[in-house]
Amino acid sequence: MVGAVLIGLLVLVVAGCVCVVWADRGGPAWTRVVASITVRGGEALRSALRSTRRRGNSGSGGSD
């Protein structure tokens, strides 16, 4: 079950990336919509990962 979910997620990510490239090359309007959603989702994920890293590193104490 977990494998099927991961494969489905991978298919969605690859399809989103294909739409980003296709929209950049002047594809149909629906590819621009999917590309916009893909880019915004990636930016949201990147922002969430940055804030998680900042919270995780703030209490490290610097004992390298």
Rank of each mutant, 00 (worst) to 15 (best):
L12C: 00
P28H: 11
P28L: 03
V11E: 10
T31Q: 07
A35I: 00
G26W: 07
C17T: 01
D24W: 15
W30N: 03
R25W: 13
V34C: 08
V33K: 06
L9Y: 01
R25H: 14
L9Q: 12
V20T: 09
P28C: 02
A23P: 15
I7Q: 05
L9A: 09
L9S: 09
G26V: 14
V33R: 09
R32S: 14
S36R: 09
R32V: 03
W22G: 03
V18M: 04
R32A: 10
L9R: 05
W22V: 13
G16E: 03
V20Y: 09
W30Q: 04
A15L: 00
P28Q: 13
R32F: 06
G8M: 00
V13Q: 09
T31G: 00
A15S: 07
V34P: 04
L6K: 00
C17R: 10
W30P: 08
V11P: 02
L12H: 04
S36T: 11
C19E: 03
V21N: 14
A35S: 15
A29K: 15
V11W: 01
V11C: 02
A23Q: 07
A23I: 04
W22Y: 15
V5F: 07
V21C: 10
R25Q: 12
L12A: 05
W30V: 12
V13G: 03
G8W: 00
A23W: 00
V34R: 00
L10I: 10
L6G: 13
G8F: 00
A15I: 01
A15V: 03
V13E: 12
V20N: 11
L12Q: 01
L6F: 14
G26T: 11
V34G: 01
V21K: 08
I7W: 01
V14A: 13
R32L: 05
V33W: 05
A29V: 13
V18E: 13
V20S: 06
V5K: 14
S36K: 03
P28W: 05
V20F: 10
V13I: 13
D24N: 14
D24P: 05
V21W: 09
V13A: 12
C19A: 15
